[in-house]
C-alpha cells in the first residue's frame, strides 16, 4: 500500500531539492535530536554518533533527488541514518545483528523463573512472587528525574539491537512499520527485540521502585 505523502511533506521535499536552507534547518530541528539518540545506540561514543549524524545528512541531501515517497520522509531519513550507523559500527568492530536473533544474548524468560510456582504446586506457572503495584511507591517517584536516569542507564546496558528498537519505538514514538522499514527487519524480529528491551526496562524500574 503506497499512500500519497502528505502535502506538507511534499512541499518540504520540493523546497529541499530547490536548495531552500530553511527547509533543511527545519528538518534538522525536527529529526536531528532523535537521529543523534538512535545513532548513539550503534556506536562507541557520542563523538562518533555526531559524525554518523553528519554523514547521514549528507546522504539525505545527495539522495533527496531520488526520494520517491514510497515511505514517509521520516522513515527514509532514518533508514539512511541506521545504514550509516551500521556501517560505522562494523568499522568499529561492533557487529549488531538485527536479522538473526539466534545466539545473541542468552536469555531465559522475561522474569526470573523462581518468581513462578513449580509444576508440583496447585497453580503451576502462576506467580509465586507477583509484582507489587508501583502506585504504592511515594507519589511522583515514577516520573522523577532520577527514574529517568535509571532508564537511560538501563537502555545503555541493553544489547545494541534492543537499544535501537526500544529507542525508536518508545523514546521517539515510531510505529512498528517505520522501525521495520528503517532497520530492514521483519515484524517478528522487531517485536522480539522490543519485548526483550521493555522487559528489562520494567525490571530495572521494579528494582528501583522497591
Amino acid at each position: 500500500m503506497v499512500a500519497q505523502p502528505p502535502l506538507e511533506e511534499r512541499r518540504l521535499v520540493d523546497a529541499l531539492r530547490a536548495g531552500d536552507e530553511s527547509a533543511f534547518t527545519r528538518l534538522v530541528e525536527e529529526y536531528g535530536p532523535a537521529m543523534l539518540r538512535v545513532a548513539r545506540m550503534f556506536v562507541s561514543s557520542r563523538a562518533v554518533a555526531e559524525e554518523v549524524v553528519q554523514e547521514a545528512w549528507v546522504g539525505v541531501l545527495n539522495g533527496i533527488g531520488r526520494f520517491e515517497g514510497r515511505s514517509s520522509l521520516k522513515t527514509w531519513i532514518f533508514r539512511i541514518l541506521t545504514n550509516t550507523a551500521k556501517t560505522r559500527a562494523v568499522r568499529e568492530g561492533r557487529s549488531i545483528p538485527f536479522s538473526s536473533l539466534a545466539g545473541e544474548d542468552e536469555e531465559g524468560g522475561a522474569v526470573d523463573a523462581d518468581r513462578f510456582l513449580g509444576d508440583d504446586t496447585r497453580f503451576p506457572g502462576h506467580w509465586a512472587a507477583p509484582p507489587q503495584r508501583w502506585e504504592a511507591a511515594p507519589e511522583g517517584r515514577l516520573l522523577a528525574a532520577e527514574t529517568l536516569e535509571v532508564l537511560e542507564r538501563e537502555i545503555a546496558k541493553l544489547p545494541a539491537n534492543q537499544a535501537v528498537v526500544v529507542t525508536m519505538r518508545d523514546v521517539e514514538g515510531f510505529d512498528a512499520d517505520d522501525v521495520c522499514n528503517a532497520l530492514d527487519i521483519s515484524e517478528t524480529n522487531q517485536r522480539v527485540l522490543l519485548h526483550r528491551a521493555r522487559t528489562k526496562l520494567r525490571r530495572a524500574l521494579e528494582e528501583y521502585m522497591q
Partner: peptide
C-alpha cells in the same frame, strides 16, 4: 507496569543537536 514503563520511556528528553554539529550540518548543506 509494562504500560507505565513505555510511558516513562517516552518522557526521556531529546537532546539538542550541539551548536558545533549544527554548524557542520549547515556548512555541509
Amino acid at each position: 507496569q509494562i504500560r507505565q514503563t513505555i510511558a516513562v520511556t517516552g518522557r526521556l528528553e531529546p537532546e539538542d543537536i550541539p551548536p558545533a554539529l549544527q554548524d557542520k550540518l549547515l556548512a555541509a548543506f
